[in-house]
């Protein structure tokens, strides 16, 4: 699997899917269109400051609330290469795996990484490196079943493979 490398953009606990992508923009499912409004209600500046490859870092229960897959779709289309959080809300967790947005649960990294830190994530080992602070953290690796889904570029790819 690929790795992620970028600067950290940090948020707090309970970042809900209504602030990730407000419902007023859900009359479309076009990823590029959704990305224009990503994080608008929590951080108006996000779309201007995010660079391709950046890593979102947050606290507990990231992605709580609505089941809208538009949330991980918007994050992925905005250029974010990985989300690191202390914990994820379960529907967001499923959706991220199913659409192939890499996510890592790591309370230590979520706590220690500061906004703007340069961060690398190795998906095979689950090791997160904070280049700025010269530290490493061990994330929770995916179960094999989920790794297979991710390797197939999401659930649809996985089903297609298994259909044949």
């Amino acid at each position: 699997m690929m790795n992620a490398h970028g600067k950290a953009i940090k948020y707090g606990d309970n970042v809900d899917t209504d602030v990730i992508i407000p419902a007023r923009y859900l009359n479309t499912s076009d990823p590029e269109e959704l990305a224009k409004y990503c994080m608008e209600d929590i951080d108006k500046d996000f779309v201007n400051k995010v660079c391709k490859g950046d890593i979102m870092v947050a606290g507990k229960n990231f992605g709580c609330g609505s089941s809208r897959e538009h949330a991980p779709i918007a994050i992925k289309a905005s250029g974010i290469s990985c989300v690191i959080a202390e914990t994820f809300a379960r529907i967001f967790y499923r959706n991220a795996i199913n659409i192939g947005l890499p996510i890592v649960e790591c309370p230590e990294a979520a706590e220690d990484i500061s906004d703007g830190d340069e961060v690398k994530v190795d998906f095979d080992s689950g090791i997160i490196t904070n280049v700025t602070k010269s530290k490493t953290y061990k994330g929770v690796p995916f179960p094999r079943f989920m790794q297979e889904i991710m390797a197939a570029d999401g659930l649809i790819g996985y089903i297609r493979q298994n259909k044949k």
Binding site: S67, E69, I91, R94, N95, N98, I99, L155, I156
Partner: peptide, 9 residues
């Protein structure tokens, strides 16, 4: 609750 991809599957 699940997402759209799970619904598709």
């Amino acid at each position: 609750g699940i997402g759209s991809t799970d619904m598709a599957a």
